[in-house]
């Protein structure tokens, strides 16, 4: 997982074995990594979920709707969604990478994405807390976090307008790559993230970084949506399985 260099002696670098990436194992530019999803990971939270795309692993838990405590003077007719993202120490990101992924900004993106599907008007004067823990980061974790959060909200039986799946694409060395790994993200000159609403087919979040030519952008968004559509099917199946399991069917 990268080089470590020391400042002394002729032995300058120790290189850990680089694992063959799936792209080298012939994953197509427009192919998703195999996905694993599960809900009800943690029984204590109102709802929880786990999502794994090979070496990217994310857990999400949802608490709420919770009563708003502490003297609020404004009348709040809708629920407030609060999102917290944390990472394990060894999740795979070096310090400079961590800085680039400003957590507060990401938390805001997740919040806004979720606001498009949660029926906040059903829960006045409440807060819905969404906690995301990135266990391992091998790319596309922001989109994984959003998909995972949707699963956890559904698991918490919070009313949703529809289900949402999120996916991202990068432009690395002139080639568009769907569901990028960490290395691919590092090499990328631009990226696009899109969250897709399963029933209406609409798009609720677009997050673009770096530089993309206009037609590249259009192509990238289309590619992302196609990926998100596939993920949306998996999200629905995961929830259906849980419903059946709960009822012993």
């Amino acid at each position: 997982m990268g080089l470590r260099e020391f400042d002394y002696g002729p032995l300058v670098s120790v290189e850990r074995g680089t694992e063959v990436t799936t792209r080298e194992r012939k994953r197509q530019w427009n192919e998703l990594r195999p996905l694993f999803m599960r809900t009800r990971m943690v029984s204590h939270a109102a709802g929880s979920s786990y999502l794994e795309a090979e070496n990217s692993k994310v857990i999400c838990s949802v608490n709420g709707p919770l009563a708003n405590t502490g003297g609020r003077t404004e009348a709040i007719e809708r629920a407030k969604i609060s999102c917290y993202i944390s990472r394990t120490k060894f999740c795979g990101l070096e310090d400079d990478e961590l800085e680039k992924r400003a957590t507060t900004e990401y938390e805001g993106i997740v919040c806004r994405a979720l606001e498009s599907i949660v029926r906040v008007e059903q829960y006045p004067k409440s807060t819905i807390e969404v906690h995301v823990l990135v266990i391992e980061d091998d790319g596309s974790t922001l989109s994984a976090a959003i998909t995972c959060a949707c699963l956890a909200l559904a698991d918490a039986k919070i009313e949703l307008r529809e289900l949402m799946a999120c996916c991202s694409v990068v432009n690395a060395n002139g080639q568009l790559l769907l569901d990028p790994t960490l290395d691919e993200e590092k090499e990328a000159s631009g990226s696009v993230l899109v969250s897709y609403l399963a029933t209406s087919g609409k798009v609720s979040t677009v997050f673009q970084t770096g530089q993309l030519a206009y037609d590249e952008m259009a192509q990238a968004v289309e590619l992302t949506i196609s990926g998100a559509r596939e993920i949306a099917v998996l999200v629905r199946n995961c929830l259906r399985q849980r419903e059946s399991k709960d009822r012993g069917l």
Binding site: V42, H44, A45, S48, I59, S61, N63, Y84, S86, T88, K89, E129, H131, L133
Partner: peptide, 13 residues
């Protein structure tokens, strides 16, 4: 060692 109480514990938040 790094430790954290994941927020799912249900403790005072």
């Amino acid at each position: 060692f790094t430790a954290h109480y994941s927020s799912v514990t249900g403790l005072d938040n």
